[in-house]
């Protein structure tokens, strides 16, 4: 309950800041760079593996249902763009960035640093959360794009070496339409916005020493991953209804 209230407060504050355009551009850029930079290697490596696994799995399904592989590349690219790319990038973001934020803000909370800010008439949400919130949305978009590309190319290698599908057959844009791209972008933006929101709220609600920080961090990763999955289902469904 307290979590919902905190999230609500942060949401209204951030929307208010967005309306008034009170976001330091320079600080935002720095945060985008930092968030992106910190997660790029992790997201890249993981997405490479996900691409390879995905092609194996998709190929085995196609073998079972329609015994030929000609649409493998197109289906991979489409699945990555609208589904696997954004959701995996969102989950990895929750893992890498979300826990980091919860840990950072949680340890500031339990050592009274957040209260010290309040006494100095600084709104901790404005100082700590807002830059991260918008920076992470932007970074999430970038990471999803880079991750999807990496996954596609690693999948292409597997298709080439494992299933003898030549790269120029594999690299087919046949299935990808604008709607898929829009859906992917929407998902990445929404995930990038909610992951820091939930994680920071968990951090602010930390109580009681290092145990409290541990609990807050755990809660942050579970809640933000779960919310990513829920949102993914919702957005996919909305897309389905609209099309």
């Amino acid at each position: 309950m307290a979590l919902l209230i905190t999230i609500g407060q942060m949401l209204s504050l951030s929307l208010w800041a967005l309306v008034r355009m009170r976001l330091g551009g320079r600080e935002m850029l720095r945060q985008v760079y930092e968030t992106g930079n910190r997660s790029l290697l992790f997201v890249g490596i993981t997405m490479a593996f996900i691409g390879m696994i995905g092609v194996y799995e998709l190929a085995s399904t196609m073998e079972a249902v329609l015994p030929e592989y000609s649409t493998l590349g197109a289906a991979t690219l489409q699945g990555l763009t609208r589904e696997m790319g954004p959701i995996m990038a969102g989950l990895l973001l929750a893992t890498r960035v979300g826990t980091g934020m919860a840990a950072e803000i949680g340890s500031m909370q339990v050592s009274d640093q957040v209260d010290a800010m309040k006494l100095s008439s600084v709104d901790p949400v404005e100082l700590l959360v807002l830059p991260r919130l918008f920076a992470t949305s932007v970074a999430s978009l970038g990471l999803a794009a880079v991750g999807t590309t990496i996954a596609f190319f690693s999948g292409m290698c597997v298709a080439w070496l494992g299933f003898s599908i030549l790269p120029d057959t594999f690299m087919s844009l046949r299935f990808v339409v604008t709607a898929d791209l829009v859906m992917g972008i929407c998902k990445a933006l929404v995930f990038g916005f909610t992951v820091p929101l939930v994680s920071c709220a968990c951090g602010f609600l930390a109580t009681g020493g290092s145990e409290g920080v541990g609990r807050a961090t755990t809660r942050a990763v579970v809640l933000s991953s779960f919310i990513v999955i829920v949102e993914d289902a919702l957005i996919t469904y909305i897309g389905e209804v609209l099309s």
């Binding site: 992790f42 490596i45 993981t46 989950l91 990895l92 893992t95 890498r96 826990t99 980091g100 919860a102 840990a103 950072e104 949680g106 340890s107 339990v110 050592s111 020493g209 290092s210 145990e211 409290g212 920080v213 541990g214 961090t217 755990t218 990763v221």
Partner: peptide
Amino acid sequence: AQGVGRAVNGCVVTTAL
């Protein structure tokens, strides 16, 4: 407390990988 936070962060990242 900071160390615990960092450890949890490192733990989930490495686990995902």
